[in-house]
Design a protein around this nucleic acid. Sequence first.
DNA 1: ATGGCGGGTCTAACCCGA
Length: 277
Amino acid sequence: MQIATWNVNSVRSRLEQVLAWLERERPEVLCLQETKVEDGSFPLEPFTSLGYGAVISGQKAYNGVAILSRLPLEDVRIGFDALLSDGPALALAEQKRVISARIEGVRVLNLYVPNGSSLQSEKYAYKLEWLACLRRYLDVQDADGDPLCMVGDFNIALDDRDIHDPQRLSGGIMASDHERDALRLALDERLADVFRLFEPDTGHWSWWDYRSGAWDRDSGWRIDHIYLSEQLQERATDCLIHKAVRGNEKPSDHAPVVVQLQWPPEVDDDEEEEELE
DNA sequence: ATGGCGGGTCTAACCCGA
């Protein structure tokens, strides 16, 4: 089972590229961020034609998330307010950044974390509030007991290996202590960045700025992540960034990230014998 | 570098992203 995440920077602008990639790669699940479209205008039909069901939560011009799946989507939850009824969760619900569904018994949570703009900005305070709310949301969600695959555009480089020029950029937006701590607090030992289970080295990016020739200079950041709970970490065999997609004509500034899972777990011989007893 | 590019929509002396 393959689960992918991709900030497409407008699903309508990127439609032909997303469809071509889906036809080629055929992941069971693709989570989209920055769809930038209200639900009534989301292009559902091209995806259903390829065999993908969809659950969506969008708004005009900004943000927007969706989960596309060739397997049944169950128990869909939209916004932090699906699990939290307090003031902060309700206030954060205005921006469409959170959607989840259960797929083959796995809770797939798709997030578009606020960027924060700059450390002095009100948007940075919003980002920290949002991450604090994420932590509380995950605490409530834990009661489900389902294995968790949390994906998305986190707009945070977890450590300096994830930045092309840490000397210049570390400590700034997307690489500051407060936001890194807030994300690590939300992860709280229960979730692992699956890319790092396979690749310890720097030099692997998922986002390249449209400006300043960042792509040509390979000056990127790794800010698109897939986090797995313990049960799924043991089932992961691969996590790849589809870098070539960033070289397309009219690309998104993000590349897709894909995890390969042995899921549902194969029943091995020992277990079969136990079941027969 | 209050820069760069490329989405969006109130098509602009616009806003926003990362």
